[in-house]
C-alpha cells in the first residue's frame, strides 16, 4: 500500500512539474535572433569591452538589433571582423581608425629620480597607495606592470629598462591597460601617429627638471616651432593634435627643438620601436 502511494505521489508531482515546465517553455520562451549568435561567433571573444558594450554578446545583440550601432566598433577584430559583421547584418562597413596604447613616460631608473625603495605587492595600484609610488615625479610610470597583466592580447611587456613596451602588431587598442593604470600614463594614439609625447607630468618646469631628465617642462618651444599649430601646451605638458600632425607634417621640427627629448618621433619611415631603450629610433 505504501509502495503504491509513493509511486503515485512521485509520479503526480513529477508529471505536474514536468508539464508545467514544458508549458512554460513553449509559451514563455524568449526567442533569440539566430543572427545574434552568428555575429557573436565572428567576434574574437576577448570580452575586452572596447566596443562600449558588456562583452562580445552584448555588442552582437546591439549591432543586430539597433540600426544605429556601426559594425566597426570591435577594435581587436580589426577590419576583417567588421567586414564579416557587415555581411551578416547588411550594414555598411567603414574602416575604423586603428588605435594603439602609448606609454607617456620615459622615466627609467637612470633618468627619473626615485625617492625610496618599494618592496610591497608588485602591483601598480598597491604601489600608488603608498604615497603615490616611489618616483619623485607623481605622474610617471611605476613600472610594476599592472598593464601587462591586464592585457588579454599579450601586447605589453616590461622592457629591459623596466618600462612597459607596446607591441604595435599585437595591440588592438581596447584600452584595458589605460583603465587599469593608476597614473593614467597610457594614452590611445593612432597607430600611425608620428610624434608622441613621452611624458605625463603636469608639474612646473623647475620641478620636472629636479625629478626627471627626460620630462616635459612645458617650455612651449614645440608649440612655437610647429608651422601647422598641431601641438599645444596645456597644464605644463605638450598635447599633440594627431589629425593635423599626420596630415600636414612633412618635417618634424618639434623633435629637434625639444630641449629634454620628451618628444618621441617616428618621422619619414623611421617607425621601429627600440625595445631596449623604449625610444622611437
Amino acid at each position: 500500500m505504501i509502495a503504491i502511494s509513493i509511486v503515485i505521489i512521485l509520479v503526480v508531482v513529477g508529471a505536474f512539474f514536468g508539464l508545467l515546465l514544458a508549458f512554460a517553455n513553449s509559451k514563455l520562451a524568449v526567442k533569440t535572433d539566430p543572427l545574434v549568435h552568428a555575429v557573436d561567433d565572428v567576434l574574437p571573444k576577448g570580452q575586452c569591452g572596447a566596443c562600449g558594450f558588456a562583452g562580445c554578446m552584448g555588442y552582437a545583440e546591439a549591432v543586430v538589433k539597433d540600426p544605429d550601432v556601426p559594425v566597426n566598433l570591435c577594435l581587436p577584430g580589426k577590419d576583417a571582423v567588421s567586414q564579416k559583421i557587415a555581411r551578416l547584418t547588411g550594414k555598411i562597413n567603414a574602416p575604423a581608425k586603428r588605435l594603439i596604447a602609448h606609454v607617456k613616460c620615459a622615466g627609467t631608473a637612470e633618468h627619473a629620480l626615485r625617492i625610496f625603495e618599494y618592496r610591497g605587492v608588485r602591483k601598480c595600484v598597491s604601489a600608488n597607495l603608498l604615497q603615490g609610488g616611489n618616483m619623485a615625479c607623481k605622474f610617471g610610470c611605476l613600472g610594476l606592470g599592472s598593464c601587462v597583466s591586464e592585457c588579454v592580447f599579450d601586447a605589453l611587456s616590461i622592457g629591459r629598462n623596466g618600462m612597459p613596451v607596446v607591441n604595435p602588431e599585437k595591440c588592438t587598442g581596447c584600452g584595458k591597460c589605460k583603465n587599469v593604470c593608476p597614473k593614467n600614463v597610457i594614452e590611445m594614439v593612432p597607430v600611425t601617429a608620428a610624434i608622441r609625447v613621452a611624458c605625463n607630468s603636469q608639474d612646473k618646469g623647475a620641478t620636472v627638471r629636479r625629478n626627471c631628465k627626460v620630462g616635459c617642462i612645458g617650455c612651449k618651444l614645440c608649440e612655437k616651432s610647429c608651422p601647422h599649430s598641431g601641438i599645444r601646451v596645456e597644464n605644463n605638458i605638450a598635447i599633440i593634435n594627431h589629425a593635423v600632425c599626420l596630415e600636414k607634417c612633412t618635417e618634424a621640427v618639434c623633435i629637434a627643438k625639444c630641449p629634454t627629448k620628451s618628444l618621441q618621433g617616428a618621422v619619414l619611415g623611421l617607425d621601429k620601436v627600440d625595445v631596449v631603450s623604449n625610444r622611437w629610433i
Binding site: F17, L20, L21, A29, V30
Partner: peptide
C-alpha cells in the same frame, strides 16, 4: 523535485 523545477520555472518567467 519541487525546488529544482520551481527555479527552472522562475528562470523562464524572469527571462521573459
Amino acid at each position: 523535485i519541487v525546488i529544482a523545477s520551481f527555479v527552472q520555472l522562475l528562470e523562464i518567467v524572469v527571462k521573459r
